[in-house]
């Protein structure tokens, strides 16, 4: 191999080593643990017939989640939903404390807390 060829090979090796190091850093960092706060959609489910559900402070709800950063990015893309089961409920106000246990997340993620900490749902008669 010529001197120029060797020089080019060495330069390429250095460049690729730096690219590899940067990629490795990104790989390890994105697989590391992190936290993120994302908007939370409250979705009442199993609403008893003859009643309708109205959620308070719907636009303000957020959830703080933790887990691998790459999964946090995915969850941010998908959004978070809390499904509140209203089966057996009667007309009036139903309050859910610790709503984080109703948040559906990707496997490997945990919901730490939801803001606001209590979610009130009004069940109103449709008649």
């Amino acid at each position: 191999m010529t001197g120029w060829g060797k020089l080019g090979e060495k330069t390429l090796l250095r460049l690729l080593s730096m690219l590899f190091a940067a990629m490795l850093w990104l790989f390890v960092t994105l697989h590391g643990e992190g936290e993120a706060e994302i908007p939370l959609v409250i979705r009442p489910v199993n609403v008893p017939s003859g009643l309708s559900a109205r959620v308070e402070q719907l636009s303000h709800a957020t959830v703080r989640i933790s887990g691998a950063r790459i999964l946090l990015m995915r969850q941010r893309m998908l959004g978070a939903v809390a499904c509140l089961d209203l089966s057996g409920g009667a007309a009036g106000r139903i309050e859910f404390s610790s709503p984080e246990k109703y948040v559906r997340l990707e496997e490997g993620l945990r919901a730490r807390y939801v803001s606001p900490g209590r979610i009130s749902i009004f069940l109103e008669s449709t008649n």
């Binding site: 080593s17 730096m18 190091a21 940067a22």
Partner: peptide, 8 residues
Amino acid sequence: ILCTGVIV
């Protein structure tokens, strides 16, 4: 990143 690059 620089240190890892040099080692690699």
